[in-house]
Design a protein around this nucleic acid. Structure first.
Ligand SMILES: [Mg+2]
Length: 447
DNA sequence: GAAGTCACG
DNA sequence: ACGTACGTGACTTCC
């Protein structure tokens, strides 16, 4: 290909390069994406160290546990079947056991996904078994039995591929293996994370994780200038508790755990274009109640309402939306005659500027961090990015310098009406990280 | 290769 | 073009 490819690329350039200027993405391209290419290359080469022995041990013990659960499931049904086949499982649950039917899939079977099983809890012992079976087999097949084979024989590390051009919002993607979806939410997930270790970077190797706290909501606060959101972040309030206080009309001290949990659902839901129907299903409330919550939310945060309406208007008029740095996403589906497709396009349009601006921000930080690490001849390695967080492998004696560097550089990617807050954690592995220093309001006042 | 499912932010 | 919350990648089943 070499010759033909080079020739094709040269001719493509003649067509594509002018588009960068026409579309206002020249600076994004020259100053963010192009410098990032080599940063990502270094990260891929750096790789991450993994304790394959630990993964193999976990896999083995899971094999036995999964076998026990299979036996339980077959016993309660009365015969064997392939639990991994959603079609067979649907047949068992809804035809043989006569459990109440869930939503219908396009294949004619009924859904057995987590949300559907949730509604069947308590109706039959098999439901909890399937739930656990799913968790264990998922983690075993995707991580425990796969990662050990992806360890490079020379480096003894796992080298992911970062795709810089795959995601429509400007996010990165990771594959072969995907290291952006390593488990964390369950106990077993955390155990898997413990197999990702600091090892080859010098004496007393440590991992450092630095993440943007609530970056998407802070970006929305900045974009909408909604006074409620802006003030909450300027005060460094717990944003979900602050939202609960507003929506449920109570003082913030009287916000209960459940009110806060709901407010969190609202805050995230609004970024994704949640409907009254979606909220009613998730919160197990009536559609009317859900609609009322959404109305109240927008009343309390009128800037949010404005942002959603104006973004949809804009994508209808121009056919695209963009981030604060001018990254564009064209969404032609906004003109679809199909109601569902059109609504999906509206939700994507509302979300992209927020998700995309967060992606722009962390990319800028990665470039600046990489440059400064080189300038200082540091031995620390940038090894992973997971959308709002960066992971470094550091010699122990460099750990605090690296942490300080993150706390200094990451908040300054973009000056906003609210601070960009950074949390940091450190540990010998990715599963046992201890919170450390974070940025505070003082740093913001200084910027 | 599509469908269903589920891991992450 | 869709399962009425956005963005991904990977696994198993089944045709
Ligand atoms: Mg975070």
């Amino acid at each position: 290909c070499a010759g033909a490819c080079a020739d094709a690329i040269a001719r493509l350039r003649a067509v594509l390069e002018p588009e960068l200027d026409e579309k206002g993405m020249r600076r994004l391209f020259d100053e963010v994406e192009m410098p990032l290419v080599s940063v990502l290359a270094r990260m891929e080469l750096n790789g991450v160290a993994v304790d394959t022995g630990a993964l193999r041990e976990m896999s083995e013990s899971l094999t036995m546990e999964i076998r026990r659960i299979e036996e339980d499931i077959y016993a309660s049904v009365g015969h064997d079947f392939n639990i991994g086949s959603p079609i067979q499982l649907s047949q068992i649950l809804f035809e043989e056991l006569h459990l109440p039917k869930t939503r219908r899939l396009k294949t004619g079977a009924y859904s057995t996904d987590q949300q559907s099983l949730e509604g069947l809890r308590g109706l039959h012992e098999i439901i909890d078994h399937i739930y656990v079976y799913r968790e264990l087999t998922k983690l075993k097949s995707t991580y425990l039995d796969t990662l050990p084979f992806l360890v490079h024989p020379q480096t003894r590390r796992i080298h992911t591929e970062f795709n810089q051009t795959g995601a429509a919002t400007g996010r990165l993607a990771s594959s072969n293996p995907n290291l952006m979806n390593i488990p964390v939410r369950t106990e077993l997930g955390e155990q898997i994370r413990r197999a990702f270790i600091a090892r080859d970077v010098g004496p007393d190797p440590m991992l450092l994780a630095a993440d943007y706290s609530q970056i998407e909501l802070r970006i929305v606060a900045h974009m909408t200038e909604d006074s409620g959101l802006v003030e909450a972040f300027q005060n460094d309030d717990d944003i979900h508790a602050a939202t609960a206080a507003r929506v449920f009309n109570v003082p913030i001290e009287e916000v209960t755990a459940n009110m806060r949990r709901r407010a969190k659902v609202f805050n995230f839901g609004v970024l994704y274009g949640l409907s009254d129907y979606g909220l009613s299903v998730r919160e197990k409330i009536s559609r009317e109640e859900a609609g009322e919550f959404i109305r109240t939310y927008f009343e309390k945060y009128p800037g949010m309402q404005r942002y959603v309406s104006e973004t949809i208007q804009r994508v209808r008029e121009y056919g695209y939306v963009e981030t604060l740095f001018g990254r564009r996403r064209y969404i032609p589906e906004i003109h679809s005659t199909n109601f569902n497709v059109r609504n999906a396009a509206e939700r994507a349009a509302v979300n992209m500027p927020v998700q995309g601006t967060a992606a722009d921000i962390i990319k800028i930080a990665m470039n600046r961090l990489d440059a400064e690490m080189q300038r200082r001849n540091m031995r620390s390695l940038m090894i992973l990015q997971v959308h709002d967080e960066l992971i470094f492998e550091c010699p122990g004696e460099e750990l605090e310098e690296m942490r300080k560097l993150c706390l200094d550089i990451m908040p300054r990617s973009l000056a906003m009406k609210v601070p960009l807050k950074i949390d940091t954690k450190t540990g010998r592995n990715w599963g046992e990280m201890q919170y450390g220093e974070a940025t505070g309001v003082e740093e913001f006042a200084a910027t």
